[in-house]
Amino acid sequence: MAMSGVDLPPVRPQTSLQRPGFLRRLMADYGQELIVLLAIVVLFVAVTAVNPRFISANNLTSIFSGNAYIAVAAIGMAMVIITGNIDVSIGALIGVLATISGTLAVAGYPIWVAWFFPVLVGMAINGLIGILVAYFRIPSIVVTLGALSILRGGLISVTGGTWISDLPPAFLIAQQKWLGLPVPLVAMIVLTVLAALWMRYSAFGRSLYAVGGNPEAAVATGIPIERRIVAVFILNGFFAGLATILFATQLQVIQSTVPPNLELTIIMAAVIGGVSILGGSGTVIGSTLAAILFATIGSALIFVNVSAYWLRAVIGLLILATVLADMLRRRRTV
């Protein structure tokens, strides 16, 4: 977690003097993403060989759209981590926003209000977190640990855990299709591509890498670090809000509690996807791929009949293997 230290992974070379081939350059720029992608492909091939139903359209739909909300939330998380911060309150936030969304929908507000008002709430809460982190210099893990307690405790004391049912059918957008594709899948792809392009090509996006990777240099080049950090938390709230829309509309009932361990899954997706936890590198494509990898692992282990008791150990081992593979790759590229 140190802001300084030699453990900083090497900055990816953007250009090289030796005019490397396309593959080499791709490997250098998107190495971790490619490893994750490779892992997904290998899993698909191996499991399909055991049970061809694994690549049936239905199963692909379940894998991709059932977990799209994790990928969408991980986009915001990736941006936060790129600036050298972290948000452990995101799971609780999504629980709170889903409850607000469902309550509004049942209370008869227009559907779009029920969808997008929680997004604003998420942005406001995260804006506050960002201000505490940026201007009051409280480490983000402290602020978000506190926010986690406040949101989780607050949700239970307000709702008492009553479930929300009788949701209007039009509200359930995650169950609908768009051009024959499930809405969550489309949302995941569109948001990931837009965010990736924006991170790579906009001045704002590029400045985030500087904020995380080399704050002194960022200050020297005139980047307003504090404003960037607040902005990135607001963005995180925005993506958490969008993730909530997918999360809350997936079933006909909303469980108004904090989803267990959701923050760990989202952080892990952002991290495994190649966003170094030290900040300053990584892409949002990687985090989305990692979210897909988790979903694939979860489904695959059921398909290949891994003893349910050993399921989590195998998941842990696969994650560790991915991390170590990345570290070995980084060493080789230096």
Binding site: I86, V271, S276, L311, I315, G316, I319, L320, V323, L324
Partner: peptide
Amino acid sequence: VPALIATLATLALYRG
């Protein structure tokens, strides 16, 4: 491996 990532991975592994 950064400590946060390493122990996040072993969190899953050891519990498993």
